Simulated assay, not measured.
Amino acid sequence: MILHFCTATAWAAAQRTGDYTADSLATEGFIHCSTAAQVHVPATMLARGRTDLVLLEIDESRLPEPPRWEPGEGTDMEFPHVYGPIPVHAVIAVHPYPPEPDGSFAPPKGLV
C-alpha cells in the first residue's frame, strides 16, 4: 500500500474521469507517492496548513505497472513514483488528512 495526498476536489474530478493525474505527471513524468511513515514529510513541505487534503490509499497490485522506488529530492529516503495515471479502481480507501494546529502534517493514524 502506498499513499498520495491531493485535494478533495482533485479526487472528485478523478472519480468522474476514471483516472487520477497530478501536475507532476506532466512536468516530471510521474506521480509522487509515499509510504504511511513518510507522507507527512512532503505534505508538510508542500501543503503546510491546507485543510482540503485527502490521502489516497493505493493498492500497488492494481496499478498498470508497479511504482519505482527512487530518491526523494533533498532527502536520503526513497519514495514510490507512479509513472502514469492512477486508475480510480486502484484507490482502495480515501482518508481525510487535516493538518496539525501548527499547520504541519503528522503520519496518518491507523495507517503507519
Rank of each mutant, 00 (worst) to 15 (best):
L63D: 02
L25G: 12
P98S: 06
F105A: 01
P108A: 01
A26C: 10
A14C: 10
M1S: 11
D59A: 14
P67E: 01
I58H: 03
S24I: 07
I92K: 10
Q38M: 13
S104A: 13
W11Q: 04
F30V: 11
W11D: 03
L25R: 03
T17E: 14
G103E: 05
A8P: 07
G72D: 06
P64G: 10
F30M: 09
P67N: 11
A8Y: 04
A106L: 11
A93D: 12
G103N: 09
H89A: 14
D102Y: 00
E78S: 14
L53Y: 00
C6S: 11
A36Y: 10
T44M: 03
F30P: 12
P99E: 10
I86P: 06
A36P: 14
I86A: 06
A106K: 10
A14F: 03
G29S: 10
R48K: 15
G29P: 14
T21P: 13
P96C: 03
R50T: 07
T9D: 12
Q15L: 08
T17P: 13
P101D: 13
F5I: 00
F5K: 03
C33L: 02
L111N: 01
G18M: 04
A93W: 02
H95W: 00
A12N: 13
L53C: 04
D52W: 02
V54P: 02
G103M: 09
H40W: 12
C33D: 00
L63R: 05
P66Y: 07
G49Y: 08
Y97N: 05
V112C: 12
A36G: 15
M45W: 13
M77P: 00
T17L: 09
L55D: 05
P98N: 05
T51L: 12
T35K: 14
P101L: 03
P99D: 07
F30D: 13
D23H: 14
H95T: 04
E100M: 07
D52G: 09
G72S: 13
F30H: 15
T44S: 15
Y20N: 07
Q38H: 15
G18S: 08
T17M: 08
S104E: 11
P98V: 03
A93P: 04
A37D: 14
E65R: 15
E78L: 15
L25E: 09
P64S: 11
A90P: 04
D19E: 15
E28T: 14
T21D: 13
V88I: 09
P96S: 05
D102S: 07
E73C: 08
S61P: 11
